[in-house]
Amino acid sequence: MSEHTTPSSSPAANRAPGVCVPWEEKRQEFPKIMGDEAIVKRTWEENDQLAYLFIWHCLLSF
């Protein structure tokens, strides 16, 4: 199993609200981003937030 599939052992311990896998962690997987990094970052964070909402809704709503 690769490191980034085990969040509790990832560098992102104490991750902020709204975040599962921080962009800073994901960014390290790309040696170079050829185009606009801001687009990649924004879309990563928007999708990442969905995973956060999923687990917290499981806890709070269901």
Partner: peptide
């Protein structure tokens, strides 16, 4: 302590597998 250190990871890695009949824990 695991919950306190990183609530989101605790929920995914420990709590969710425990409350689900289908979800497996890491490992």
């Amino acid at each position: 302590d695991a919950l306190i250190e990183d609530p989101t990871a605790f929920l995914f890695n420990t709590w969710f597998p425990r409350v689900s009949n289908d979800v497996d824990a890491p490992g």
